[in-house]
Design a protein around this nucleic acid. Structure first.
Length: 445
DNA sequence: GCTTCCCGCCACTTC
DNA sequence: GAAGTGGCGGGAAGC
């Protein structure tokens, strides 16, 4: 299959960033839902009805040999056209319709003209933020963006529960012991060490959705799950949710999620995955790429729902992103070598620096004069809030939220094994405290 | 030269 | 045993 030749009239890669997705969305709605609630079989048989941005097919979906694919690479190949973010936008445009209920992976792969493997990536991330849910093999149920707030809330609560001092693991939970034994049994010992050490967030995953099978299998699948993209996504999001981190670099995130003292290769792998996740999340407008103020390192800022005006129109339009790189245009130029992650002291210094930045941004938010701009939670309806900013009920709501936060701060007993995380958290507690005091004074007057 | 991230191999899981 | 799932890291595009 010659790929490049068939390259559909790419809805303009060069066009306005969102045009591809927008066009996709428009086209999608014009031509009706693709695999609407219809029967799986029926859906699978459908030819593509939606004219989405069609990247040249390379070595994928059609089962072409990778050699051919690579051979085709020379002309017309552009990563931008095949990015996960764009794919995600198209995916959302395709399925975010009123009458879409179920999604078949095959169908999706076919419609989007990509290989299945890529669909798994997208779907795993989407599932972890509640946009869809796996129903059966090959079948997902589309929940849409309406499912996001609940998912995030759930995520946050879970994270808080995990961190809230309750003994590291629920007795019956296999998590950490399992991890341990699993790791020990694992043939990849070095790997295991790192994992065992770094499960602070991962072990959290009370991913009980799976049937309690034979213990042996369980260990293995747990181990696998612990490294899953979905889980990593959740933990990444948790960083934003629980700590209200406004921006975080992928390096930091990887470090936080992985813990210190792990192999560099592990870090690299983690960061690679985080790139994947970040691209998807940013195409959902849940995060956006920015730069850390002083280090000028690329980082991601949590947008949550705050910036999403209306659920329905919020169909994954990448934030003014003329091209893939634009969203990360200013690539870091910090002249560190890859090995930079090895030095623990340096790590620590950097983390603290990062924490400083985060606190700064946090403070910036707080001190922004008109506090009504502050978004308490990821899904606080910022727009409404603005309108009613001087409304008493809003004040009360705020107050309640604040109290919630305070409760959190008080009841919280984060037990990060990672010292840096502890330090980081300390900063937040301080920030919360002063903010809370300040606000209490105001609201009660 | 470095960052970003696509691609597809292949191990593992599920049917 | 076959099909589905997805971790993983090589290596190339992009800057």
């Amino acid at each position: 299959m010659d790929s490049a030749s068939g390259a559909a009239p790419a809805a303009s890669v060069a066009g306005p960033s969102s045009s591809a997705a927008a066009a996709a969305a428009a086209a999608a709605s014009a031509s009706g839902p693709s695999s609407s609630g219809a029967e799986p079989s029926a859906a699978a048989a459908q030819p593509p009805r939606v004219q989405l941005f069609q990247p040249p097919v390379l070595g994928g979906g059609a089962g072409s040999g990778s050699g051919v694919a690579r051979a085709c690479r020379h002309h017309a190949y552009s990563r931008k056209q095949k990015s996960l973010g764009l794919l995600c936008s198209n995916f959302v445009a395709l399925y975010d319709q009123e009458d879409v209920e179920t999604i078949g992976l095959d169908d999706a792969a076919k419609q989007l003209n990509v290989e299945r493997r890529r669909i798994y990536d997208i779907v795993n991330v989407l599932e972890s933020v509640g946009i869809l849910v796996r129903r059966a093999k090959n079948r997902y149920t589309w929940l849409g963006f309406g499912g996001v707030p609940a998912a995030l809330k759930e995520l946050k609560e879970r994270a808080l529960r995990e961190m809230s001092g309750s003994p590291v693991l629920p007795p019956m939970e296999e998590s950490s012991t399992a991890n341990l034994s699993d790791d020990e049994d694992d043939e990849k010992l070095e790997d295991a060490d790192e994992d065992a050490e770094s499960e602070k967030l991962s072990q959290s995953v009370d991913n009980t959705s799976d049937k309690p099978d034979a213990p042996g299998c369980r260990l293995r699948s747990d181990h696998r799950k612990e490294k899953s993209l979905g889980l990593l996504t959740q933990n990444f999001v948790k960083l934003f949710l629980t700590m209200e981190v406004e921006t975080i670099s992928l390096d930091e995130a990887a470090r936080l999620l992985l813990g210190e003292g792990h192999a560099e290769s592990n870090m690299r792998t983690k960061v690679r995955r985080l790139y994947d996740i970040a691209n998807v999340l940013s195409s959902l407008n849940l995060i956006e790429k920015t730069q850390q103020a002083d280090t000028r390192k690329p980082a991601f800022r949590w947008l949550g729902q705050a910036k999403r005006k209306q659920e329905n129109t919020m169909v994954a339009l990448p934030p003014a992103r003329p091209n893939k790189r634009a969203f990360g245009t200013d690539l870091t130029n910090f002249d560190n070598k890859r090995g930079r992650l090895d030095s623990t002291t340096e790590n620590k210094a950097k983390l603290m620096q990062g924490a400083g930045n985060i606190v700064k941004t946090f403070e910036r938010q707080l001190g922004q004069g008109n506090r009504s701009d502050f978004v308490y939670g990821p899904f606080h309806p910022a727009v409404v809030k603005k309108q009613e900013s001087d409304d008493l009920t809003v004040r009360q709501k705020e107050r309640k939220t604040i109290q919630d936060w305070e409760n959190l701060a008080v009841s919280f007993r984060p037990q990060y094994q990672n010292q840096a995380l502890n330090d980081l958290f300390g900063h937040y507690v301080e920030a919360w405290k002063s903010w809370y005091l300040d606000l209490t004074r105001e609201t009660s007057s």
